[in-house]
C-alpha cells in the first residue's frame, strides 16, 4: 500500500534525514515538521536546522505492530521535546522500555527504518538515543 512508496518518503528527505524545520521570519517560532502558515498568521519562513537534542516527554513500547514493522517488533517510540522547542514523534533506539524515563536526555541518530515491497527499497530516517 502507501507505506511501500519510495516517492512518498523521498519528498520529505530534508526533514526525515537531517531534521530540517523552519522558523517564522516575523515571530521566530520554530516548526518541525515545517509549516506554511505561522500561528502569528505570517507566511514568510526560513529553513532552520534543528540540533537533534531533546528530552523524552512520554514513551511506549509497541508489542503489537502494523504489518510493515513486524520484523523489528518490539520497539520503543516516544514524543521528544527538541531543544529548540518543537515536539516530535520518534523511535527511541538502543534501549528497552525499562531503561527509559520521562525527562531522559536524547540525541538523534540516523537509522534504517524498513525495507518494504517487492523492490526492497530501504527507508531511513532519524531516531533518538539516550545520552549516557
Amino acid at each position: 500500500m502507501h507505506r511501500q512508496s519510495p516517492i512518498l518518503r523521498w519528498r520529505k528527505f530534508p526533514e526525515r534525514y537531517r531534521l530540517e524545520g523552519n522558523r517564522c521570519n516575523r515571530c521566530g517560532i520554530v516548526y518541525f515538521p515545517k509549516k506554511e502558515l505561522c500561528e502569528c498568521s505570517c507566511k514568510e519562513f526560513s529553513s532552520f536546522q534543528l540540533s537533534g537534542k531533546g528530552k523524552i516527554l512520554t514513551y511506549t513500547e509497541i508489542k503489537s505492530s502494523p504489518e510493515e514493522f513486524s520484523e523489528m517488533t518490539p520497539y520503543c517510540v516516544g514524543i521528544i521535546e527538541l531543544a529548540e522547542g518543537p515536539k516530535i514523534t520518534g523511535q527511541i533506539t538502543d534501549a528497552t522500555v525499562d531503561e527509559l524515563k520521562v525527562g531522559d536526555d536524547v540525541e538523534q541518530v540516523f537509522r534504517k527504518f524498513l525495507a518494504v515491497g517487492d523492490s526492497g527499497v530501504i527507508h531511513y530516517g532519524v531516531k533518538f538515543k539516550k545520552i549516557e
Binding site: 507505506r3 518518503r9 526525515r16 515538521p33 512520554t58 514513551y59 511506549t60 509497541i62 503489537s64 505492530s65 502494523p66 510493515e68 514493522f69 523489528m72 520497539y75 517510540v77 516516544g78 514524543i79 516530535i88 514523534t89 520518534g90 523511535q91 527504518f113 527507508h123 530516517g125
Partner: peptide
Amino acid sequence: WEGFNGLTFCGLYAM
C-alpha cells in the same frame, strides 16, 4: 510522522 515511526493507536494512547 506518527505512522512512519511505527506507531499504532494503542501506542498513541499508551503515551
